[in-house]
Amino acid sequence: MSEFFGSIYCWLEDFFGIELAEYLWGESSPEQLSNMFIGIGLTMLVISLIVAVCYYYIINHPRLNNWWGWLIFLGINAVINFVVGWQWVLKDYYAGLMVKKDAATQKMVDLPIYSDDILAFGVTNMLDAIIAFIIFSYIIKWWSTNCSRAPF
């Protein structure tokens, strides 16, 4: 499971930085030894599925049975997942957990991870959530009474 989520996030690791990717894998900091991609990835999938189910089965209004109605829910999903991915990692950044032991001085020093890298990870989470929402739309739209033809 960890390899799956790590691979779908690390297709853009150059965008959010190798150092942050190693931290999220649990490889670079003694403060964080578990793979964070699992929790973030599962949360992203659950949120995307919930938003898709809300669109196709809970809201399910005939007025939204078009491309712009579907696009509104895609945007809601994207914004929620951007905030979740960004804040999840930013919490560790502000808590001072992104550190490593310097080999020369044996002191703990900050990893070269910046707030821009964390913001870029939020964008990566958002892009993955958009893809997940599109996939969930293809899977579950067929049984909707009013929105089965949206967006395609």
Rank of each mutant, 00 (worst) to 15 (best):
V79W: 02
M108C: 01
V84E: 04
A52F: 01
F15I: 14
G85S: 10
W11H: 08
W86D: 06
V51T: 11
T124P: 03
M44C: 12
F73A: 07
S48L: 11
L12F: 04
M108R: 03
G6K: 09
Y9W: 07
E3S: 12
G6M: 01
I40S: 02
A132P: 03
N81E: 07
I18M: 09
P112L: 11
D117R: 03
F73L: 07
P62I: 13
W68H: 11
A104R: 10
F15V: 15
M126D: 02
V99Y: 01
G75V: 09
I134Y: 13
G75Q: 02
L45Q: 05
G39K: 13
W70I: 08
D116A: 11
Q32M: 15
I113S: 00
I18V: 15
N35A: 07
W67T: 15
G17S: 09
T145D: 09
A120M: 10
E31A: 14
W70M: 09
L20C: 00
Q87I: 12
Y93L: 15
Q106N: 14
G69N: 06
F82P: 04
N60I: 12
Y93C: 07
Y56A: 13
F5T: 02
K100F: 12
M126C: 11
P30E: 01
F133K: 05
P30N: 09
F152D: 00
A104H: 12
S144C: 08
V46M: 06
G17K: 04
I135G: 12
C54D: 01
Y56S: 11
W142N: 14
I130G: 03
Y114S: 14
I72F: 13
L119E: 03
L64M: 11
G6Y: 02
A150I: 11
Q106L: 15
D128F: 13
K91F: 14
T145P: 06
A104S: 08
I47P: 02
E31P: 00
V79Q: 03
F16Y: 15
I40W: 00
Q87E: 12
I50A: 13
G96W: 04
W25M: 05
I135H: 05
Y56W: 12
H61E: 11
A120H: 09
I134V: 14
L127I: 15
I139E: 01
R63L: 13
M1H: 04
K91A: 08
F133M: 02
V83E: 00
T124F: 04
V123Q: 02
S29R: 11
P151L: 07
P151M: 11
I130V: 13
I134M: 12
A120P: 02
P151S: 07
S115K: 09
I76K: 02
K100N: 00
Y93I: 06
E31N: 10
D14Y: 02
I131P: 06
W88K: 04
